[in-house]
């Protein structure tokens, strides 16, 4: 027993030592990012994108990166006169990639939030997202006011839709599902007590396009969120260049063209002005 205590004590001491080593040595402030000139000089820009979020950032059957985010990334690199090195990122490590300077820009459907703005610098936005509500053609839900409480709304647990409805419409009963597939299954049931499904509007619009008999009655609910490129905190030269670039791209209607090249198949013409910021 005594020995167990002893080794536990030694071990915790070691862990504390290790942690303090990692914790304290972060004092000096070195620039982790590369400035605009340094990127140009190296001839390659590292851009963090999603590789499995069709149609925004994905890899096609020939191993090429494609999608709405990629369309912009390619253009940025072209105008900068450098090659792109795409880095496959996950939703959970995007901030980390910027903070360690392992990528110069994140262009991975990055929603601007207050917490994230403290950790990275967002450039001008290029897309809108908000929540949407889809329902059956024969009983289209166009408003959440005066809700009949014998009916419920489908949400996927942990999504912004669930958080939004719980906060703003606490009286509406929710039917919660863990996965997209289960929520979809419930939506397709004829005798379900749920008459609508709330999710990101890109998701419900795509669902409407792919399945017969459904209508997006509420295409945008609550405050829209914006999606923007992000750079490492403090990388002013790069941020200023991207901002200027986005402004001139807006003038030439680049983002409408990007929508038509990459998103129109999934979302159709009707939502072009809802999703694109220009």
């Amino acid at each position: 027993m005594k020995r167990i205590f002893k080794s536990a004590a030694i071990l915790s001491l070691a862990v504390i030592l290790l942690m303090s080593m990692f914790g304290c040595s972060g004092g000096e402030s070195k620039t982790v990012y590369r400035t605009l000139d340094e990127i140009k000089e190296s001839g390659v820009i590292n851009i963090g994108v999603f590789s499995d979020k069709s149609p925004f950032g994905y890899v096609d059957e020939n191993g090429e990166y494609q999608g709405y985010d990629i369309y912009l990334a390619n253009r940025l690199a072209q105008d900068l006169g450098v090659k792109v090195n795409y880095v496959s990122t996950e939703a959970a490590n995007r901030v980390e990639y910027l903070q360690t300077g392992k990528v110069d820009i994140i262009l991975a459907n990055f929603t601007v939030t207050e917490e994230r703005s403290e950790e990275v610098d967002f450039c001008l936005p290029y897309m809108n997202v908000s929540l949407g509500v889809i329902s059956h053609d024969d009983n289209v839900v166009t408003s959440l006011e005066n809700w009949d409480n014998s009916k419920s709304i489908i949400v996927i647990s942990g999504t912004t839709a669930e958080i939004f409805l719980t906060k703003n419409y606490p009286d509406i009963p929710l039917q919660k599902f863990d996965s997209y597939a289960n929520a979809k299954g419930e939506m397709e049931k004829k005798d379900s007590r749920s008459i609508a499904w709330a999710n990101d509007n890109t998701e419900v619009i795509a669902f409407e396009k792919q399945n017969e008999g459904y209508t997006v009655g509420i295409p945008s609910l609550g405050d829209p969120d914006i999606i923007a490129p992000a750079v490492t905190k403090g990388n002013v030269t790069l941020k200023d260049w991207i901002d200027g670039e986005i402004e001139s791209l807006r003038e030439e209607k680049f983002f409408h063209k990007a929508y038509e090249e990459t998103l129109i198949e999934i979302y159709g013409k009707d939502y072009e002005d809802t999703l694109v910021i220009e």
Partner: peptide, 17 residues
Amino acid sequence: MIGVVEVLKVAQQIIEA
């Protein structure tokens, strides 16, 4: 999770595309 594209990531890419 650290950006290495190995078999599982390729699988996810193929499924999503």
